[in-house]
Write a protein that binds this DNA or RNA. Structure first.
Lengths: 139, 139
DNA sequence: TTGATTGCAAACGGTTTGCATGGGA
DNA sequence: TCCCATGCAAACCGTTTGCAATCAA
């Protein structure tokens, strides 16, 4: 289990000589419960409701830092970056109807897959993107 | 086997009431032998060497049409669209050293994987992105 | 001939950057 | 106090769009 958590961030931030600001707190707060793989802009919107007047630059700064620190994962979907607070090995389903991105829990499949890659390649991780229609859009 | 081929494009274009222009020919020509998953801009550069004065808009137009026609596949890599003339089920390895995108031939894996997805989701296809270091960058 | 296609340049949308101001530690 | 972080606005970069000129069929 590796899900973004407020306390972890607080300690990691301060222990690396950085500062914990209200803006960062608000961003982490929102992100830790987010299940919708928000874009930077969605984070900005949401945070500005909870904590008005957070700038775009700050949101990007924080997201970059969180990514760097391995507390959040970037998901590239259709030439747009989304942020996922769940850094466990898991996969994504992208609905071509509504565009929603949902988590697919990884079964044992993972390790099995490395077999397809020539062994002079050093595979560090893999992501599977399923595409199709979600239950709501299927009808 | 479903690899972009000049002749196929010619017939598909004309049979759908479109026109075959020198620019389109040049783009298809370049793409059909490309193994590097070029970006739109790389296509533009390359085509302008072979056939000077092709505009950005034309490249995008053609790439969109080719994608729509299923003759080419868009690969989303790091918030940037790349184009792949190979539309067969296959996967990609992205090197974190040099950024190169290489093809990984799909083994039997495909159908097996759908199992991880709840069956009220209608999976139409899946892509696997392996990340790590290629032989050259591994040292 | 004529409608699809092109080239151009401006617009667009997400992301990045520079810099002066502000605020944690 | 001292830097780190913030807000702002302009810059950036890939992509899209509008439009008049052009050219394949």
């Amino acid at each position: 289990m590796a899900r973004l958590h407020k306390q972890i961030v607080e300690t990691m931030v301060t222990s690396s000589g950085l500062k914990m600001t209200p803006q960062r707190r608000a961003i982490v707060n929102y992100l830790q419960d987010a299940t919708n793989h928000p874009t930077a802009d969605e984070v900005l919107q949401a945070v500005n409701e909870a904590f008005p007047m957070t700038s775009r630059a700050t949101v990007y700064n924080t997201l970059h830092w969180l990514t760097e620190a391995g507390l959040v994962r970037e998901v590239y979907e259709g030439a747009m970056v989304r942020y996922d607070p769940n850094t466990d090995r898991h996969h994504h389903f992208v609905c071509r109807g509504c565009g929603k991105v949902e988590d697919i829990i990884s079964t044992q499949s993972g390790d099995l897959l490395s077999l397809s890659v020539p062994n002079d390649y050093q595979v560090e991780n893999l992501e599977i993107t399923f595409r199709g229609l979600c239950p709501d859009c299927k009808t």
